[in-house]
């Protein structure tokens, strides 16, 4: 029986070599291109997605290890693109080229799900695996703080 994986709430058969990293299954098989290829070695964070709500680097995660797991990509983070982080990213005009930002947002969402009010140091520690070559770090940090604040008011 074909094994399957759930991506953004939708079941997909794993019809590829199980060693294929999730990144390429998303990008080349499903043509879900919001998740980006940056380094292929888990060094830059551009490919970050959630597995059962937790951030992982999809470029080094074989799809065979994800059978039956729930994957969330940037396309599925929120129904209307209005996750507090997405709104904060817009409020703070975070993106320059924007290429790394899907990974940044997914990583930050994972952080906020376990730490609703991270300190500056905790943000640094959680986000240090995500490179932005355009240099938007100052705004990323501001946006995360703002989103955390929004979330605390919503609860």
């Amino acid at each position: 029986m074909t094994q399957s994986i759930i991506i953004n709430g939708k079941k997909h058969a794993i019809d590829v070599d199980g060693n294929m990293p999730l990144l390429w299954f998303l990008r080349d098989q499903l043509e879900l291109t919001g998740t980006k290829f940056g380094c292929g070695s888990g060094l830059c964070g551009a490919c970050t997605v959630h597995v059962n709500g937790q951030a992982i680097r999809s470029c080094i995660t074989p799809v065979s290890t994800l059978v039956g797991k729930k994957i969330t990509t940037i396309e599925g983070l929120s129904e209307k693109g209005d996750h507090p982080l997405q709104r904060a990213w817009l409020n703070n005009n975070v993106p320059q080229c924007g290429y790394c930002q899907a990974g940044q947002i997914m990583n930050a969402a994972s952080l906020l799900s376990v730490n609703a009010a991270p300190s500056s140091e905790e943000i640094d520690t959680a986000m240090q695996g995500n490179i932005c070559r355009c240099g938007t770090y100052q705004r990323i940090k501001k946006a995360i703080v703002e989103a955390a604040d929004t979330l605390s008011k919503e609860v």
Partner: peptide, 21 residues
Amino acid sequence: LSRHDQDEVVVGKRIYGVDTK
């Protein structure tokens, strides 16, 4: 003025050269 395309960026819909299909 905000970038004209940033709402596409934050939902992963902005298409880059590498995304062409």
